[in-house]
Amino acid sequence: MSVQTAPKPVQEKEKTSRRIAFSQKRGKWDVQLSPYLYISPFFILFAITGLFPLAYTAYVSVHEWHLLLGQGKFVGFQNYIDVFNQPTFWKALRNTFSIFLLSSVPQVIVALLLAAVLNANIRAKTFWRMGVLVPYVVAPVAVGLIFSRLFGDQYGFINAILGLLQMDPVAWHSEVIPSHIAIASMVNFRWTGYNTLIFLAAMQTIPKELYEAAIIDGAGRLRQFISITIPQLRATLIFVIVTATIGGLQIFDEARVFDAAGTGGASKQWITVTMYIYDLGWGNQKNFGRASAVALILFFIIILIGILNFAITRKISDSGSSKQGKKSKTTISKATRTK
């Protein structure tokens, strides 16, 4: 535009005003568009590595598709119907939720408590703080090895101790719940320290004045933790819970290394949905159609739970802020009373 207008003989006044107009316009564009431009690499990358595979998975899931032989005929929703009719799919779903709850819930609670302890005035702080991260550094395969010795059915360490205490051994690899507990403990071993450090970092940003005020008000440690630490950590809690949910619903490594075959046990006691996808697609069946169908189902389940999570956390934060409002009112009234 400026190129076109420049050679034309125009009055000084008008020219300057136009220039200002254009630069203003450009400035406006700059403000409006450049943020999108700056984040566009992520979305372009996401479209290539995320969106396209997602759409392609949907395409594969309505076809007969073999890993080696490739695309077969169009079958509509037959793959989905087959999957829903398979008891293994429902077992996988059950196991995934069970392992997810058994791992995420204790993990977040223990991480929170550990962080509170680490945040307190203790000796050799750095040592303890680095210590909780050590399990995270250990390679998953090594974790698998260690835990397979712990949770052995006949010669395992835990069963040996139970034997010394005259208790019955636990059938870790045969029964459903014990196998889930064993796998969840593997997950927790790895991730508790990681979450602890995130909580610890968040705790250190809480203003000290709040605690000082609480101490003056006569609040004990527990009271401080419940009334100050946890409400102040709300944003971090939401982050940790959301990532734990997404990760928890995709548990794969730990369950796969739980036995040598890695197919989730003889009666599929601990097969997870992701393992089921792997087994369908890359196992003996090589049935990509069905594997894609399960992958999409899992995708929708995660979205559904994500929405649920969002709704719940928003509710909590809403009620939390109203509570806080009340609290500030009461402190004000207290303050006025003391006056």
Partner: peptide
Amino acid sequence: NYFTIHTAIQNGITRVDVNKS
């Protein structure tokens, strides 16, 4: 399909021999 079927049967044997369930 040999190994697909074989795995199903081996799972059955494990349930009795190893898991005793």
